[in-house]
Amino acid sequence: MSDASQKSDSPGYGLMGLTAATVLVALGAIFIYVPTERTEGVVQRIMYFHVPSAWIAFFAFFVVFLCSILFLWKKEREWDIYAHASAEIGIVFCSLVLITGPLWAKPIWGVWWVWDARLTSTLVLWLIYVAYLMLRAQSEAGSIRAKYAAVIGIVGFLDIPLIHFSVLWWRTFHPDPKFITTQGIGTGNETSMNITLIVALGAFTLLYFLLMGLRVRLERMKDEIDRIKKERLYSH
């Protein structure tokens, strides 16, 4: 492998530095800058982790969907790697949503869990992509695994709106999104809260790209090792 390709494989220290700085700024904003919410108290600060995690989870699953389509179309291993990496990161952040949600709900609603629309659809979403990763783990490496995973990646994402509406009509009592409302972006909250949320969203998004870079690099190394192993095996 040449030096140039190795360089492009590394996640880049620039991105790493920028992510670290933004995460620090976000932490500062969350714990020092932003005032404590009047009615909910200090627990409300969990929103700055909960909402960005949810955003990254959905974004990651959308990337899985796009890469799955591109894989079935172009049949390039590259897209399979991206879909796989993004699904794993999506599961991590989706799990964070499912963990921070009950922590926030317990003091405010008085219960850990309610069968509300958004909670239910997030749980179903989590199950879909856990199944996606299980499918990947169950099938042997190669183009068949990539194709099967791509089909689930597409089917799973197309199912999201249907799941959303079905559980919404089933029942709901989640607070309406305050940040993005029908009146526009950021009219429901205090300005400092909006700024903090935007910084947190930025930090999480950068973190997503950083993790993607690292995970993709790892997967490429695995491919490289497999290739070398095979070469050695056949040369003897």
Binding site: V124, L127, I128, A131, L135, I152, V155, G156, D159, L162, I163, F165, S166, V167, W169, W170
Partner: peptide, 11 residues
């Protein structure tokens, strides 16, 4: 694989 995807049908 199937059960989470057929949630809309079930509900």
């Amino acid at each position: 694989l199937l059960y989470p995807l057929i949630v809309p049908i079930a509900i």
